[in-house]
């Protein structure tokens, strides 16, 4: 090392220069790529919602979304109505799918009446689907998903995703075999009260033949991620119960 690079003045100037250069480089990259990234996220939401109601390109054993170029058209075709529920009030909103569930959840601070709850009502082959977003916490980071239900709150399809769960373990919540286990599961118990669906270890039903036990088989080695799925289903879907009760009374 030459003496020049050892002086304190040089070191400080170098640090300042580096921070300015790197900072502006990253800021430039982030802001110039931002439109493309948010467009991707928007399309992904549409794909997620469509996936949960069974509009997808699934191959045997693996979960495949409908392709991004077909997603907006399919979204317009299958999703007949989007509503926002807040404190019991139901209003129609064509951009309900853009609501950030994470922000709603954190700004409501546990006060469910403050939350705007998006619900997507879709129709496929003459059947009506009610798709609701859920959001929670796994082992390392956020987990979220979309659950589609019929008017009796029986699950018709589910999609889960995660930010940083362990590959091979918790990350498997977005595998087909796990998501498909939820299909047909009842969210309400026999007396009609909300019970949710528990991701249970040792439910002794790996083929998931029992659909009214409010349980699906857990993934080995992914206990905390599984508990996170259980918790977000319980806490978020519960908020929709009044809507479904109203639906039946009318």
């Amino acid at each position: 090392m030459s003496n020049k690079t050892d002086s304190n003045v040089y070191t400080i100037l170098f640090a300042i220069g580096m921070v300015i250069l790197v900072g502006s480089l990253l800021a430039f990259a982030a802001s110039s790529l931002e439109p493309a990234i948010s467009e991707n996220k928007r399309l992904e939401k549409q794909q997620n919602i469509l996936y949960a109601m069974g509009v997808n390109d699934n191959e045997e054993g693996s979960a495949v979304f409908i392709s991004t170029d077909k997603a907006p058209q399919a979204f317009a075709e299958y999703i007949t109505k989007q509503v926002v529920i807040q404190n019991g009030q139901v209003t129609e909103d064509d951009e309900a799918y853009l609501i950030d569930v994470k922000k709603e959840k954190s700004s409501a601070k546990g006060d469910a009446s403050k939350r705007r709850l998006p619900l997507f009502i879709g129709e496929k082959d003459g059947k009506t689907y009610y798709v609701a977003p859920i959001y929670g916490k796994g082992l390392w980071d956020a987990i979220w998903g979309y659950v589609s239900m019929d008017e009796n709150m029986v699950i018709q399809g589910a999609y889960f995703d995660h930010k940083g769960e362990t590959p091979g373990l918790g990350a498997n919540i977005k595998q087909r075999y796990f998501m498909d286990d939820f299909i047909g599961e009842h969210l309400l118990d026999e007396s009609g009260d909300f019970k949710g669906v528990t991701v249970a270890k040792g439910n002794a039903d790996p083929l998931n033949n029992d659909k009214i036990d409010n349980e699906v088989d857990a993934i080995a080695g992914a206990t905390i991620t599984g508990d996170g799925v259980t918790a977000m289903i319980k806490s978020d879907l519960k908020l929709y119960v009044p809507y479904f009760k109203n639906l039946k009374n009318n």
């Binding site: 030459s2 050892d6 040089y10 580096m18 790197v22």
Partner: peptide, 15 residues
């Protein structure tokens, strides 16, 4: 390598 100040080289590498 010839312009990195040796005192903060680890930080520069991290950046």
């Amino acid at each position: 390598r010839n312009i990195i100040p040796s005192k903060i080289r680890i930080i520069v590498q991290l950046v």
